[in-house]
Each structure stands twice: as C-alpha cells, then as structure tokens.
Computed example of a mutant assay.
Amino acid sequence: MANPVPAPNPVPAPGTASAREVSRRFRPPVLVALAASGVAVIALLVVAGGWLTPYDPGQQDLMRGAAGPGDGHWLGTDALGRDVLSQLVAGARTAVVGPLCVAAGALLLGVPLGVLAGYRAGGLFDAVINRFADLVYAFPAMLLVVVVVGTIGDGYWFAVAVVTLLVLPAQIRLCRNTTLVQARLPYVEAARTLGLPAARIMFRHILPNIRPTVLATLLLDFGGALISLSGLSYLGLGVPPGTPDWGELLRQGQTLLAVNPYMSLAPGLMIIIATVGVTLLGDWLYDRGTAGTDPR
C-alpha cells in the first residue's frame, strides 16, 4: 500500500501576515517597553499625585530642617523641613503640564500652517512661513527665552508661550517638507483630477499619511519643552518660589548636596526618565507608523 503524500503547508497569500508576525512586528523592544513604563508612571503622578503624596508638600518642620532619608521621609527633607518625596510627586504636575501645553500649541498651530505651506509650496504663504522660521532659527533659542522671560518677568505661563513660539517653526518645517513629498505622489494628483477641494485633499488624504511624523515631533517637542521649562525654573525664572516643580527642586537642592543629595538627584532623574522615555517612545511609534505604509 502506497504511503499517503502529506498535504503541503498552506502558503499565505501575498500581502498577508500571520497573527504571530503582526504581533512580532508591533511588539516594542525591551528598552521601549521600559521607557513606556516610565512615562506611564509619570502620567500617574500627574493625574493622581495629590492622593499619592505621603505628606502635605507645603508642610514645614523647622525643627528638623534639611536632613537625609529617615523618620518616614524616604528622600529626606529640605531646608524648611518639607518632605522631598511629596514635593517630587506634587511637582510632576507643574513640570509636565507646561511642556504638554507647549507641544499641544505647536501641534495645533504648526500642523495646519505646515500642511498648507507644503501644499501651496512656492506661493506667498509658503514664503512668509519660511521667513518666519528663518527669523526664529537665527536666534539661540534658550538664550532668547532667558532674556525675554528675565526682562519681562510675567510668570510661568508667559514662559510657556515664549517656548511654544520658539518650538513652532520646527513643527511647521517638518509638516511642510513631508506634505511637499506627499503632494507630488499619484494619489494627490488623482484627487486633484477628480476635483476634490484642496482642504479635503490636505486634511483627509495627506494628513493621515504624515501622522507618524507629526506624532514623533509632538513627543520631541514635549521633551525639549520639559528641559527648557525645568531649566528656567532652575534659574529662578519659571514657577514662583515655593511651588513644587522639578526644576525648582534642583535649584534648592544645589545648596544642600552635602546634607541631602537626593533633593537634587531625584528630580534630575525624573527629568531624564521623562525626556528619554518620550523620545524613545516617539521613535518607536514613528518606525511602526512608517513601516510598510502605502500612500493612497
């Protein structure tokens, strides 16, 4: 009796992928997973920090003064006897909300302006946008922020507005350049031939194809704004004195390094985790968004 011929393994149809391949493709590397976990922890502190602080961040204990960890204070206390861990947790909201506003402002203003400039490349609007970007790029960004905020001194939210203005040209330029590439592709020419309105072509067809670039730039803007605003607080030009903030903690802890180094190390570490975390996460999301894309 002849041996039965085994049935051949089914061959996947072209353009399809098994569930395992899809899972492997979108599974984040270990480093990205750690970065996402760090960002998630910081987001939790921002949302629920008021319920997680072991002490009132403003509660003073002048008899204790500055001291290292001990007596229920895991990160020690500052010069006024305030719990450093409570200030660190409470300061997450101040440290993160400002950069979020910067990134959101650059997104809401930069994306429409950049897409319109790229779609209308070579026109008057494109020329004005490019000259504005060149003008902002001509100045050292951080030095300009320090001079303007230090001269006018109108508070933290004025600093947020200035940083947003300086971040805006990068978002505009990236959206313009990516839109310029998309506008030359056949699917845009086909949409024009069909007589679709320019606004629909830009925001219903081109914008979804540049979404990975927009998202990556959003996260990079957040990281840059976090460093800038924390630096301003460290220089005494950001949040008002006494307000829980990572940059303010760094400034106060500079004079207490010999007594309680955790007062500077902890907020510095949080700034590093937040900045590196959003950068790695943005790079990974950009790679996943652009892998195998098929503009149409």
Score class of each variant (00 low, 15 high):
Phe158Glu: 03
Leu196Ile: 05
Ala191Phe: 15
Val276Pro: 05
Arg82Ala: 00
Ala225Pro: 06
Thr77Ile: 03
Pro4Val: 04
Ala17Thr: 09
Val160Ile: 00
Cys101Asn: 07
Leu168Glu: 11
Pro54Thr: 03
Pro186Glu: 12
Thr243Gln: 06
Met63Thr: 09
Ala19Ser: 03
Leu185Ala: 10
Gly231Lys: 14
Leu168Tyr: 13
Leu250Gly: 05
Leu31Ile: 12
Ala191Ile: 08
Arg25Asn: 09
Thr94Asp: 05
Arg20Asp: 08
Pro4Thr: 05
Ala66Ser: 10
Thr243Pro: 01
Ala198Tyr: 00
Gly70Val: 06
Pro54Asp: 11
Val276Trp: 04
Ile273Val: 04
Leu218Gln: 11
Ala35Ser: 10
Gly224Thr: 05
Ala106His: 13
Phe203Pro: 02
Ala133Val: 10
Gly289Ser: 00
Pro186Arg: 15
Thr293Leu: 14
Asp287Lys: 15
Ala191Met: 14
Glu21Lys: 15
Gly231Trp: 06
Leu143Cys: 08
Gln171Asn: 06
Tyr156Met: 08
Val11His: 13
Ile227Trp: 04
Ala198Thr: 06
Tyr119Thr: 08
Leu135Glu: 06
Pro261Thr: 10
Gly292Thr: 03
Val163Arg: 06
Phe222Arg: 11
Asp283Ser: 12
Phe132Trp: 07
Leu196Val: 03
Ala141Glu: 00
Gly70His: 01
Val162Tyr: 01
Gly155Arg: 14
Val22Pro: 09
Leu235Phe: 14
Gly282Thr: 04
Pro244Asn: 04
Gly110Asn: 07
Leu280Glu: 05
Ala95His: 06
Asn209His: 00
Arg93Asp: 02
Ala36Met: 14
Arg184Asn: 11
Val5His: 12
Leu215Ala: 08
Leu232Gln: 08
Gly289Leu: 15
Leu100Asp: 11
Thr279Leu: 09
Gly236Lys: 13
Gly123Met: 14
Pro295Glu: 01
Val276Lys: 01
Thr178His: 11
Gln252Gly: 05
Gly122Cys: 05
Ala67Asp: 06
Asp56Ser: 15
Glu248Ala: 12
